[in-house]
Design a binder for these strands. Structure first.
Lengths: 251, 251
DNA sequence: GATTAATGTGTTATTATGACGCAATGTAAT
DNA sequence: ATTACATTGCGTCATAATAACACATTAATC
């Protein structure tokens, strides 16, 4: 894998990579898709290199698809990271031996890499990270329990979440994170989880319905304790319209 | 200049550049600092390359300083641009001859360059773009009259302005764009110019003063037609506090 | 000194927000 | 079957923010 890239390094943008923060929502938790890096005993954001014949956005989609298998999801560039020492000694002698990379070609890898951060919102239920046939451990991890990450991936993850929190005020969220049919309490939990903040049930309902992107279905959620909540779906047309025009006008 | 960089290309991050959208405010107009590219008869955003021993943020500051001479201004990364063909044929044979760059070394230049966009807000009155001793034409141009730009610089400029418009709702603006003492109508014109939208005088005053970042001075603007408006300054301490915490909470 | 074109201050109606109350519903315990 | 209970659905009220507008004040100009 990595060796293939190194051996064809002229086909890839040098010193530049992509890292994706892939968010999902499950069990009322905000999950992040992470990859176990065995040799370092740490975890990593799914990332990749940029073929010289691909737009960076396209390369980001490729990374996302190769890890999640889903297409057409919400994917947005949020920041680029380029501290001088960000990948200093990341590929040390041990690692190069592990990947069977010759010393001469290793130079391509060991230089400072600038990485472009993208975050994605995906439907947890449609993704089976462990069934991708790759020889690696990919897992959904609760964002509150993210273990130590390699390099500056923690910083990248934090920045992605910060961006998501800000964008929550500028656009609707949920279409990409929830199944087709969902309940208002579920949507509220999603907002509360992202914002890490309790919201008032009744005020939330009013505010979210006033946006005009929800369709109330003639159907209730089954197999639930206590009163069965109504099911809703997004009105994709209106949703996209609001996505385009934004929510808060401010000034 | 360029030749120096090419001759020492190993000291620069390959295929990666920085472009700065430098905003100023003068005569009730939002100005952008642009550079005339004689050989192409087009204009360009001030940009530069990234030394391998500099953080990208540091490199951006360097670009900004070298063009404006000012330090400590507002500078923020807003997006990274990397379409495959974005600099296709930008350095053609003619250009390479012009810069006296050998064909062999030109390869470093002619590959696809990904560029990291930064925007800056600077005090127009403190900057004298033409007195920097460089052998190039640098000019403040009204953003509404920006001529044809090289490459995708138009796209970069537009994205910068979009970002600025959005951030106007999230943070206070003005400290970096206005002189130390200013009037409320001036500040309002700044907002109106950035947003390209008329605002109500009285509502603007109320809203802007409620933020609590302004200090009303015991001084009026002199030499003006009609009633002399009061002068204000920013309360830097409170300004920075609001900058950090943000304006609109939204949810 | 009147005119003029701005600025400074205030009012009102409307809308949005935050903090609650209470009835309705479906599951689980008695 | 009846009751308890947790959760949903719908509504109220006080307060704050916003939009639209009226009028007095000021300083240069005629």
């Amino acid at each position: 894998m990595l060796k293939d890239i190194i051996d064809n390094s002229e086909n890839y943008q040098p010193g530049l990579s992509i890292d994706c923060v892939i968010f999902g929502f499950h069990d009322n938790q905000l999950k992040v898709l992470l990859i176990k890096v065995e040799r370092a005993n740490k975890w990593s954001l799914p990332g990749g290199f940029i073929p010289v014949d691909q737009d960076i956005d396209t390369a980001a989609i490729t990374v996302l698809n190769s890890r999640t298998g889903v297409e057409g999801v919400f994917l947005r560039q949020f920041a680029t990271f380029g501290k001088v020492n960000r990948n200093h000694q990341h590929f040390d002698k041990k690692a190069l031996e592990y990947f069977q990379i010759e010393e001469e070609k290793a130079k391509w890898l060991t230089r400072r890499f600038v990485t472009i951060g993208y975050y994605a919102l995906v439907d947890f239920s449609k993704i089976l990270p462990n069934l991708l046939g790759r020889n690696e451990v990919v897992e959904w991890i609760d964002h509150k329990e993210v273990p130590e990450l390699i390099l500056d991936h923690r910083e990248i993850l934090d920045k992605a979440l910060d961006t998501l929190r800000i964008e929550l005020n500028l656009m609707p969220i949920g279409y990409n994170l929830l199944p087709e049919k969902f309940t208002i309490p579920e949507l509220q939990k999603l907002y509360e989880t992202i914002l890490d903040k309790k919201l008032d049930r009744r005020n939330f309902l009013r505010k979210i319905t006033n946006i005009g992107i929800l369709t109330k279905l003639d159907e209730k959620k089954s197999n639930v304790a206590h009163k069965a909540p109504n099911l809703y779906s997004f009105d994709k047309e209106k949703y996209d319209e609001v996505l385009k025009n934004g929510l808060n006008q401010g000034w």
